[in-house]
Amino acid sequence: MASGVKPRVKVPKTAAAGEAITIKTLISHKMESGQRKDKEGNVIPRSIINRFTCEFNGESVVDVTLEPAISTNPYFEFDATVPEAGEFKFTWYDDDGSVYDTSKKVAIG
């Protein structure tokens, strides 16, 4: 498990039924690209978040494949439809097998 990996998401607390909302997500992760070399000249192996998914009440909003060219502390902004009250689930998958997740509830109002 990579250390210091912290997910953050920005989701409105309420939405009208069927409304489109903007979601911003960030996860603190080094995203070691596999291009860098250490002092001895050895390649530092790649170690990145390779996938990010967002679901609402079990249905997919977006499923992102990340490559090493995504910047350190991967940031995504996208729009989601909120058909009813429920919960957004955000999941990040690390090269090393770790999985990070967080969720946010949205009420209709």
């Binding site: 912290k6 953050r8 911003k24 960030l26 603190s28 502390n73």
Partner: peptide
């Protein structure tokens, strides 16, 4: 603040 990557460190 959400767009500001420096804020992650404020949280840590």
């Amino acid at each position: 603040d959400f767009d500001n990557p420096g804020m992650i460190f404020v949280e840590t």
